[in-house]
Design a protein around this nucleic acid. Structure first.
Length: 672
DNA sequence: AGCACGCCGACT
DNA sequence: GTCGGCGTGCTC
């Protein structure tokens, strides 16, 4: 069979693929899964070949493929993986595939397209290049032995080295068994001993592994640990800090299977790692594992889909299972792994302190007393505050006016030092007025307490102590906050190094956590509390304690958060089952930003009815909640079972290739 | 997405 | 008289 055309998935937000002509020079070289460069609307793009075609679509002038990229084609399994992901996340295939596309600088093409071998002329040269019998990619060779163009050309001429065109074949390994597990391991020390036994096991079995961490800090720490413990291992460390050359080297080594272990952050899961059996994800709920753009996919779910298709194992390491992991454990999709934990004597005691009515500061007498006591014992105090900035809102004392972001419809957050307002959803900045813009009143005041304000209050209340505020924005700056005696901060405080050295943690106001609109807020708070209980004060000289301040009458609500997972999760899961929410069903939101309200509403309704024609449940249109575009946008919500994901994808993609080109912005978010 | 083509306002 | 705004259409 001789295909003349290739169907390409290009990195465009379009739900369609494009046909290109295979030039005679590339006939037979291009296969399904190849990466090629083409011209598209006066630009050059890299696209993956998703099918070969005998015929071209009629009535079109088809352009030629310009060149074949010097990387191995994606395997059938790999292609299927990306296809399934694109369907699940209602994202164009080419957009999903673009995560897997290496950044190829112009200078890489030539060398990466060639391969070197030891030549027949085995001159006892002053240097020996340990080139394996199967040869070495020339790009890799130059990264290992230096980019010395003249020298290599000479050696090739002499016959010391032999260089050929690289022919890259599909390397597909699938493992028959899927075997995934959950490990509950809290501390770094314990995770080190987990890694010791894990790497030993992996070596015994002669298998390769990928370890994915949520941030650079953890990655750096465990990479140097592994490298010190196992100096003979071939380790690839991969994260977004790599320069392009090193990044592509990692890509090539992974592709070639020239590694034993890959350690990386989120992006490392897209490497074409050959013969990978083990996938280990640390702290899967951490924000670092989530893409920051719609559809917000994450390491855990991506790898979970991978092992479903290609086999192997997905091992998840965390402190407490999340709601979805708890569900997977009860359905046996994941198995609970046992690890000998050097368990702590007992979790720190939790004290609930209620205030009747807030005026000024929320600092209660009991908490103040506890803080003084800890300071007296030379312990460190952490104050955990939910809101960032100075106050979560700024308004007029006289008329009740408060500043609202014009396009998100939520209160602006107030920052005192800069006298500025920032929208917590879209980041829009505004200056504040001298007088109330509505009534001209002179008293503008902040409502509620953010970290900065609490910090200010603590400085006043404990004026002889060093109080440091950690707001997420200044993460990098205050590298050594550990020396202060009182630390006030948002969730950034919950880092292991900070928690373990502290003797007292105060949750400033419980209601700030419980009355969040987000459906996942409860779970997030629960996991944070579990984390605190596991790590607080492990290295503190004083037995650690937890104080929670909350409005009177919240005791009952609080007590649920002190339950173990087997009591905390089932009612939440039951509720989600009834509502058709994840993890039972897929929940997709299609948000449309309006320009012309009347017309645009019709367009959303049209999508809704074409889904309903297929018997798929759709809610809305509602005013869009939560993220950006608040008031000028509407959304529909789609519920469906996993089995119908492909069907929904087809309806949505058809809809968008017809109607999506209409003016206006869309966004799609999916949870499952 | 990106880029060209097209039709209306303030400018050397 | 032109530069340039972004609304609209299209991409193998």
């Amino acid at each position: 069979m001789n295909a003349h055309f290739a169907l390409l998935a290009l990195p465009l937000p379009l739900f369609s693929e494009f046909s290109y002509l295979i030039p005679p020079s590339l006939a037979g070289k291009i296969q399904v899964g190849s990466l090629v460069e083409v011209e598209f609307k006066n630009r050059r793009l890299l696209g993956w070949v998703v099918a070969l075609q005998e015929e071209s679509p009629p009535g079109l002038e088809i352009k030629e493929i310009l060149r074949l990229a010097p990387v191995a084609p994606l395997s059938a399994g790999g292609l299927l993986w990306t296809k399934i992901l694109s369907q699940l996340y209602l994202t164009p295939w080419g957009m999903m595939l673009s995560f897997f596309t290496p950044a190829l600088l112009p200078s890489f093409w030539d060398s990466a397209g060639k391969r070197v071998f030891s030549g027949s002329h085995t001159e006892a040269s002053e240097e020996s290049f340990s080139i394996p019998p199967q040869g070495m990619n020339f790009f890799v060779f130059q990264e290992k032995f230096g980019r010395k163009k003249k020298k290599w050309e000479k050696l090739i001429k002499n016959g010391v080295l032999r260089r050929e065109e690289e022919t890259l074949e599909v390397a597909e390994t699938t493992y028959p068994r899927k075997d995934s597990g959950w490990w509950s391991i809290a501390t770094r020390k314990e995770r080190e001993s987990f890694l010791l036994s894990f790497v030993e096991k992996m070596q015994e079995e002669n298998r390769k592994a990928l370890l994915v961490f949520p941030d650079f800090r953890a990655l750096d720490y465990f990479t140097s640990f592994v490298e010190n413990q196992f100096p003979q291992l071939r380790v690839i460390k991969y994260d977004s800090r790599l320069a392009s050359r090193r990044r592509f080297l990692a890509y090539k080594l992974a592709e070639e299977g020239d590694f034993d272990l890959i350690l990386g952050t989120r992006g490392s899961i897209f490497l074409p790692a050959r013969d990978l059996y083990y996938h280990v994800v640390f702290d899967p709920e951490d924000k670092g594992h989530y893409s920051d753009r719609p559809p917000f996919h994450d390491t855990f779910r991506l790898l979970h889909e991978k092992v479903k298709i290609k086999g192997g194992s997905l091992e998840v390491v965390g402190i407490t299972p999340s709601l979805s992991m708890y569900h997977f454990l009860s359905t046996q999709e994941f198995r609970k792994r046992d690890f000998p934990v050097l368990s702590r004597a007992s979790a720190p005691p939790v004290n609930l302190i209620s205030y009747e009515k807030k005026w000024g500061s929320s600092l209660t007498f009991s908490v103040r007393k506890a803080i003084l006591q800890v300071l007296n014992e030379k312990g460190r105090v952490l104050i955990w505050v939910q809101k960032r900035g100075y106050t979560p809102a700024l308004g007029c004392r006289d008329c009740g006016f408060y500043y609202v972001c014009p396009h998100c419809g939520v209160a602006f957050r107030y920052y005192k030092e800069t006298r500025s307002l920032i929208c917590p959803l879209c980041g829009k900045k505004e200056e504040i007025d001298l007088f109330c813009p509505r009534c001209g009143g002179v008293w503008l005041e902040g409502w509620g307490e953010g970290v900065e304000k609490v910090g200010e209050e603590m400085k006043k209340a404990f004026s002889h102590q060093q109080v440091v505020v950690i707001d997420s924005e200044k993460e990098g700056e205050a590298e050594e906050p550990l020396s202060s005696s009182i630390l006030v901060g948002t969730s950034l405080l919950l880092r292991e190094e900070i928690l373990q050295g502290a003797s007292l943690l105060v949750i400033w106001s419980l209601e700030d956590w419980l009355y969040l609109p987000d459906i996942n807020a409860k779970e997030e708070f629960y996991l944070s509390l579990q984390r605190i209980q596991a790590l607080l004060g492990l290295a503190s000289p004083v037995p650690p304690r937890i104080f929670i301040q909350g409005r009177k009458g919240m005791e009952k609500e609080m007590s649920q958060f002190l339950q173990p997972p087997r009591d905390f999760y089932p009612p939440l899961l039951e509720k989600r089952k009834i509502l058709g929410y994840p993890p039972y069903e897929v929940l997709a939101r299609v948000v449309k930003r309006y320009r012309n309200r009347g017309k645009d509403e019709l367009v959303l309704r049209k999508l809704k009815s074409s889904l309903e024609e297929k018997g798929i449940e759709v809610g809305g249109p509602f005013p869009a909640q939560g993220r950006k575009w608040g008031e000028e946008s509407e959304e529909i919500t789609i519920h469906y079972t996993r089995e119908r994901a492909e069907e929904v994808f087809n309806v949505v993609s058809q809809f968008f290739s017809r109607e999506g080109k209409r003016k206006g912005e869309w966004r799609i978010e999916v949870e499952f």
